[in-house]
Simulated assay, not measured.
Amino acid sequence: MRVYLPSTLPTLARVADAGEVGPAPLTGYAVTPALVEWYVSGDTEELEYVALTDAARASLRMLAADRADGVAVPARRVVIAAEVPDDVVVAGPDIEERARVRLPVEVRMKQIAAVHVDDLQAVPDVEAAVAAVSAADAGDDDARFVVDGVEDHELLWYATQEIPDLL
């Protein structure tokens, strides 16, 4: 099963050094039964895009948390796409985040299929979204508009062998 793991550039650097995403448990996003039921008309590619978008939103939250802790982290959303055995993925009953899953194990580097990262041109909009994501999660419509706006930027695709150059 393809699972999308939210990340940041510093976290991706740690993954590259350690050779795995961890420690477990991990939160990811995937095409779950709840997502399929909710998004009835979508094909597999559309459903995977929804899961990727949810992971990118979670990456924004990670960036905001790092910034709140005083960590200087580049304003670029990062999503790690990995192939994980179906029997390891645990889908939750979360109605708000239908694609959210838990992984009770680390994800090894050889399971990573690709990495998706914002282009540098997206940085100003990502900066604004990072500043607004907490208010958006609390229901502020203006903040939600700012956060939704960053999704106009498509994440770029990088093969695993390109990770060192990306970092």
Rank of each mutant, 00 (worst) to 15 (best):
T32Y: 11
T44K: 13
L52D: 12
H153I: 06
L103C: 02
P74I: 02
V50Q: 13
L167K: 07
L60C: 03
I80K: 01
E96I: 01
G70D: 14
V3M: 09
L120V: 14
D140T: 04
I95Q: 14
G19C: 01
L155K: 09
P23D: 12
P164I: 05
V79C: 07
D54T: 01
R67S: 13
E20L: 13
A64R: 04
D86R: 15
H116L: 11
A99C: 06
P6G: 11
V73C: 01
A128D: 13
D152W: 08
A68C: 02
E162I: 08
P74S: 01
R98W: 08
A159P: 00
E106G: 05
V79N: 03
H153P: 00
V146N: 05
V89R: 09
V146F: 08
R144P: 02
V115T: 08
A16M: 04
W157H: 14
A81G: 08
R2L: 10
V3H: 12
D54R: 07
P74E: 08
E162K: 10
T160I: 06
Y158W: 14
V133C: 07
V107I: 10
A65C: 06
V50S: 09
P104T: 04
V117W: 07
P104A: 10
A131W: 00
A75Q: 08
G42C: 12
A114C: 01
A30Q: 10
A58D: 08
L5H: 02
V88N: 11
A18G: 05
E20W: 09
L52N: 03
A136I: 05
D17V: 09
E151N: 11
D54K: 06
F145I: 11
V133M: 07
R100M: 12
A138T: 02
A55C: 02
D69P: 02
G70S: 09
R14G: 00
V84I: 11
E20G: 01
A75M: 09
D66R: 09
G139P: 09
I112C: 04
V105D: 15
Y158M: 11
R61W: 06
